[in-house]
Simulated assay, not measured.
Amino acid sequence: MSTAMLARSAKAAQHETCHIVTLTPDLARKWLERNTHNRKPRPGRVEQYARDMTAGRWEFNGDAIRFDHNGVMLDGQHRCHAVVKSGVTIRVLVVDNLTPEAQNTMDRPGVREMRDQLGLAGEYNTGMLAAILRRLVAYTAGSRSIDGGRVNPTQGEMREFLDTYPQVREAVVVSVKAQKYLSCAPSVVGTAYYICAECDRAAADQFFVTQLIEGIGLTATSPARALAKRLNDLGSTRGRVNGDDALRYIFVAWNAYRAGRGLTRLQAPKGGWTAANFPNPR
């Protein structure tokens, strides 16, 4: 950096300030009036932040809301919208008097993902665990889609789920076993295993591990046999089965297994899957 550039940088730094502010919904509304040079807000992200704030999961982490020397908001619009939406007051770090050009270096790639957070917490198979947690939080929130449905879980929601239901880790073991044998995302199998184990753990171990994955004790009409064939047939034509479809087929086969009813084939209902014909596990 040249001497002139160093001098300009030092001069600018004299005017930059940072402080912690109690951000109320009313103050957030006033700040959003200064949000005149920014990308369009993402409603999904606002909804995520607002859910965490409402549930008390929002943590002060030092990420700043930033303004330039003209008072224009450069960063922080999603947090402000979420405070307004949730009605919750939070503490935030505020940096003022930045140059407008500073916005060009914000929101660069490299966000710490859920798998990274789990790794820092000492978890194993963190990618699989994160995928199962994401699917389970969406499912338990009432979404009948675990592949990009209306519920997009936050990291706080996933951490809370794992803390409340540590047996999710057992589903990871099943997923790892399944990934060599079935043509669907192994995290879908782990998700289904967890949900079905809540109904009957011993039956879930027998159906998923012994029969579906290991192929032991199958007959011509075993639901697990029909399920494996359906998933692998679809996988041979589509590459990998859609996660939502796989979950539905798994639940149909599981319900047949639990009822002691034989199956020789599996297929979607006429007209396709709907909320009305979703096969809830029993």
Results as ranks from 00 to 15, higher is better:
S2R: 04
T3S: 10
S9P: 02
S9I: 12
A10T: 07
A10E: 07
K11I: 10
A13R: 15
H15D: 11
C18Q: 13
T22C: 01
T22F: 03
L23R: 00
D26F: 08
K30W: 13
L32Q: 07
R34A: 14
R34N: 05
T36I: 02
H37I: 11
K40F: 12
K40Y: 09
P43V: 12
R45S: 03
A55K: 04
R57H: 01
F60V: 11
F60E: 04
R66M: 10
D68N: 11
G71N: 05
M73I: 02
G76H: 12
R79C: 00
R79E: 01
V84L: 04
K85W: 09
V88Q: 14
I90D: 05
D96L: 14
N97M: 02
T99F: 06
A102G: 00
Q103G: 02
Q103P: 05
Q103I: 14
T105D: 13
M106S: 05
D107G: 10
G110T: 11
V111K: 15
V111L: 14
L120N: 12
E123R: 08
Y124T: 00
Y124R: 09
L133W: 09
T140N: 07
I146C: 08
I146M: 03
I146N: 02
G149W: 10
T154S: 08
E157F: 01
F161G: 07
D163T: 12
Y165H: 15
A171M: 12
V172A: 04
V173D: 06
V173F: 15
S183K: 13
S187C: 11
S187W: 03
T191L: 12
C196K: 07
E198I: 10
C199G: 04
D200Y: 00
D200G: 02
A203P: 08
F208W: 09
V209T: 12
Q211D: 05
I213L: 05
G217N: 07
S222V: 06
A224W: 11
G235I: 00
T237R: 15
V241M: 00
D244C: 04
A246D: 00
L247T: 12
Y249D: 01
I250G: 10
F251H: 12
V252Q: 03
W254T: 11
A256I: 07
A259Y: 05
G260F: 07
L266T: 00
Q267T: 13
Q267V: 10
Q267E: 12
A268S: 06
A268N: 06
P269K: 06
G271T: 06
G272E: 03
W273E: 05
T274H: 02
A275H: 13
A276L: 08
R282K: 15
